[in-house]
Design a protein around this nucleic acid. Structure first.
Lengths: 295, 295
DNA sequence: AATGGCTTTTTCGAATTTGGAAAACAGTGA
DNA sequence: TCACTGTTTTCCAAATTCGAAAAAGCCATT
């Protein structure tokens, strides 16, 4: 017998001074009412109610118990209501983690609109170029730009981005021309340490797929800083377009191997597998999908 | 699944950051631990714990819930402990009801010793010559000097008393002699209204049983006052010896029909049928039995 | 005394739930 | 890759639960 049910039933019986009225009130059978109270008395090894078929009164222990239990049940109801409110409204704090550059370039511009839509939801965003352990560090939502490791996390695709090769005009002027992927092997390259295989660059043209093992002149876990290194003529860069675009637009970097279709990279939303996805996570999920998907 | 158990298990899991450690701690199987937490989450329609096979952290809702539930569980434990204490120690208040004269003559003299033995138990005794409804009026214990009605009450025999006939010497001097029970029919009699049949007196001699239907000159629901009426020569009295003895000893009344064995009357302890008899009731039951039984 | 209305408790068999062992699954470190 | 730890799922026998109906009890009225 569920103990909390038993408490509720006991209180109802006391308040109605009747098993049958309590039963109708609680919409359960009279038999169950009787049994629940009995199970409670058994658990306490005490009789709480003096009863015959016509009347019911509280024993001294029952009186005390009822007196104590009523506020407890109220508090329990409050606690449940509080949780209920937390799950049905979009409030509280949403803890997210995402790569620094992706956050800076693609997410941050959207935040004002998001905050406008959900003013009661606080955001706690960690920008970090590492694979945070969502469970261990208590993140509700993570944003990954990489191939996902097998994991118990749920992943939803957010968008696809194209990897591009580029270098500074000055660098290109001073070094041998790059006409095929294989030419890259002779160049100092700027590699991204969080890639599964930082020094293996993949380029595609039609059916052809070229996997090049490049020399890493500098390896960092931050794409933007890699791009800045490229601007300082340190070598050839291989990064997603959302990082390169500003440098290409400004002319600081020049694309190379443009006749090659560069590999696509996927962005993912990941969150701890759960049956009961909080509204706040759903809100962010929906918001980001409408803004960033199929671009 | 028992909700309170689920709460306790949830808290243990939080405190140990582990299902398996919580399970060992609580001495239940790991499977049960997992299921209980899941049932709680289902009931709340919320996930309380982010978990993979290596780590566990609280969600925002879980954090709040844990924070709220811990004091609630403590309070619940306190409440249970309080009831436990009430049932295992002899404290509180014992509410009794008993006939006025029986109480005055037989019970009150014993009370000082009882109070000495159980100083923490308060007594609330109603002296009243009526059949109080123990259940309706919340008595823990009743004392009855009469034949019992069918009832759900538990009855324990406390002692037997002998009904005696008596009248004042002056009354006897002025009225016809009473040699047989049938002679009573010609006398004004003092009847006790709470008897099943106040005007039917039964007297026994050997195998013979005489049932006499007497004339009631005065009917009261208090034996002592009836005896005082007899002292004032109002008629013949038929009362238990514990009421008559002082009047007989002082000579205020004279026994009559002494060659007849008078009917026995039983005293009973009655209490609402209960599986879990409170210690305080047991204490009084035992005390009175050793003092009043088989006299 | 008997009746009838009302209430609680018990009974009983069907249906559901429970609980633990073991398998499956996931993450980590070697 | 394997070994190891920890969580979840699966499976199924055993226990429990449930409600309808019967039984039992109380009381007022006849």
């Amino acid at each position: 017998m569920d103990r909390l049910d038993a408490l509720r039933v006991f209180c109802a019986v006391v308040e109605h001074s009747s098993f049958s009225r309590a039963a109708t009130e609680l919409n359960i059978s009279v038999a169950k009412t009787s049994k629940l109270v009995q199970s409670l008395e058994q658990a306490l090894n005490t009789s709480l109610l003096r009863r015959n078929t016509r009347r019911i009164t509280l024993t001294e222990a029952g009186e005390r118990y009822y007196h104590d239990v009523v506020p407890l049940l109220e508090e329990m109801a409050n606690i449940d209501a509080r949780v209920e409110r937390m799950t049905t409204t979009i409030t509280g704090t949403l803890r997210m983690t995402m790569p620094l550059d992706f956050g800076r370039r693609l997410i941050m511009p959207l935040i004002p609109e998001f905050k406008l839509t959900y003013p009661d939801l606080e955001l706690d965003i960690e920008l970090s170029d590492r694979h945070a352990d969502l469970v261990a560090e208590g993140f509700d939502l993570g944003l990954r730009v990489a191939d996902l490791k097998d994991s118990s996390l749920i992943a939803k695709p957010l968008g696809t981005y194209r990897m591009k090769c580029a270098a500074s005009p000055e660098y290109l002027a001073r070094h041998p021309a790059i006409n095929t992927p294989e030419d890259l092997e002779a160049h100092p390259c700027l590699t991204y340490s969080l890639s599964a295989q930082p020094s293996n660059w993949t380029l595609i043209r039609g059916e052809a797929e070229a996997r090049v093992r490049v020399q890493s002149a500098l390896q960092l876990n931050n794409g933007d800083l890699l791009a800045q290194a490229a601007c300082q003529h340190l070598g050839v860069l291989y990064q997603p377009d959302f990082i390169l675009s500003t440098y290409l637009d400004s002319g600081a970097l020049t694309p190379i191997l443009t006749d090659w279709q560069d590999r696509m990279v996927h962005a993912w939303l990941v969150y701890p597998a759960r049956k009961y996805l909080p509204m706040k996570v759903q809100a962010m999920l929906g918001f980001l999908k409408t803004r960033l998907s199929d671009q």
